[in-house]
Computed example of a mutant assay.
Amino acid sequence: MRSFVRVLLGLALVFAGTSHLTFARQEFRAQVPELVPIDEDTTVLASGVAEIGLGSALVLASRRRRLVGTVVALFFVAVFPGNIAQWLNRRDGFGLDSDEKRIARLFGQPLLVAAALWSTRGGSRQRS
């Protein structure tokens, strides 16, 4: 089950990263907090590249799964301010067109952190 969740999460990250670079680029700009010191489009592109790399690492990692899971979890924590900014600034994107929907999304981020950590732990033969 852990491997299934790890691969699913990895594939979701690759898809999300690809969408940052292509069809959902404008939608992701709604999530960039004003405090980010570089322009929105550059931030979206950079985070997309990071998601593709992290997702690929989750899918392909065999010897360093714990490390990859930790880095992915930290990435999810790092992008959380974007979700908060989207809620606070009432920016629509990805069907999040109400405060209720944007708040509900905030509760999903800790689940992603937990999934990244849980899916890359376990098994007595696994090394860091």
Results as ranks from 00 to 15, higher is better:
Val36Ile: 15
Gly123Cys: 12
Gln31Trp: 11
Gly17Met: 10
Ser56Pro: 02
Ala104Asp: 11
Phe76Ala: 09
Ala46Ile: 14
Val68His: 01
Leu60Val: 10
Ala50His: 01
Met1Cys: 00
Thr42Arg: 15
Trp118Phe: 10
Gln126Met: 10
Leu35Ser: 12
Thr70Asp: 00
Val113Phe: 04
Ala73Asp: 09
Leu106Val: 06
His20Pro: 00
Leu11Gln: 04
Ser47Glu: 12
Arg29Val: 07
Ala57Tyr: 07
Gly53Lys: 05
Pro33Met: 06
Phe15Tyr: 13
Gln126Gly: 01
Leu111Ile: 12
Glu34Asn: 08
Thr22Tyr: 01
Phe23Arg: 02
Gly17Tyr: 10
Ser62Glu: 12
Gly123Ala: 07
Ser62Gly: 01
Asp99Cys: 10
Leu58Gly: 05
Lys101Leu: 15
Gln86Cys: 05
Trp118Gln: 02
Ser56Tyr: 07
Phe15Ala: 15
Ser62Trp: 13
Pro37Gln: 09
Ile52Lys: 00
Ala116Asn: 03
Val59Asn: 05
Ser124Glu: 15
Asn83Glu: 12
Ala73Gln: 01
Val36Asn: 04
Ser56Val: 13
Trp87Glu: 10
Gly55Phe: 03
Val14Trp: 01
Leu13His: 07
Glu27Ser: 11
Trp87Asn: 04
Ala50Asn: 01
Leu67Thr: 08
Phe28Val: 03
Ala85Tyr: 13
Lys101Asp: 12
Val36Ser: 03
Leu8Trp: 02
Phe23Cys: 05
Ala30Met: 02
Ser98Asp: 06
Gly48Ser: 05
Arg121Asn: 07
Ala24Asp: 14
Ile84Glu: 02
Val32Glu: 03
Leu117Tyr: 02
Gly123Trp: 12
Glu100Lys: 05
Leu11Thr: 07
Met1Leu: 02
Ala16Asp: 14
Leu117Glu: 09
Thr70Ala: 12
Arg105Thr: 09
Phe15Gly: 06
Asp97Thr: 15
Leu88Cys: 02
Leu117Pro: 03
Glu34Leu: 11
Leu21Gln: 04
Asp92Gly: 13
Phe4Ser: 03
Leu8Asn: 08
Glu51Gln: 15
Gly17Leu: 08
Ser128Phe: 15
Glu51Lys: 12
Ala50Val: 15
Ala46Tyr: 10
Ile103Lys: 02
Gly53Phe: 09
Leu74Glu: 07
Gly95Ile: 15
Val32Tyr: 04
Gly122Cys: 04
Ser62Ile: 13
Asp41Asn: 11
Trp87Thr: 08
